[in-house]
Amino acid sequence: MLENPVAALTILVLAIFVGFEVIAKVPPLLHTPLMSGSNAISGIAIVGAILSAGGEDQSLSTLLGFVAIVLAMINVVGGFLVTNRMLRMFKKRPERQ
């Protein structure tokens, strides 16, 4: 679907704008979880890695793809879990008795 470079660049530019709009509103309080969460999202390279490693031929490309799967999966799992761990710590002031 990206054969047409114009369509591809359109997606790219619009996605960057969406990114700016969405993230500009995140308060400094949450900057660290935002980073670890976006870390996890950059693990989206897992999609590419699956395509590289899952192909029919066994070759160097498959090996590279395998290593890429491991690294990307560390990102995805590690990133989302540690973000969740952090976010659970952000608490409101407790109602004092």
Partner: peptide
């Protein structure tokens, strides 16, 4: 990741990658 999306002709990668790119730049 975004560049990889163009390599693999995969819009999902492009979108997710540019979100992270934008977030880091901000």
């Amino acid at each position: 990741a975004c560049a990889t999306g163009f390599v693999l002709d995969n819009a999902g990668l492009v979108i997710a990658g540019s979100l992270v790119g934008a977030s880091g730049l901000i």
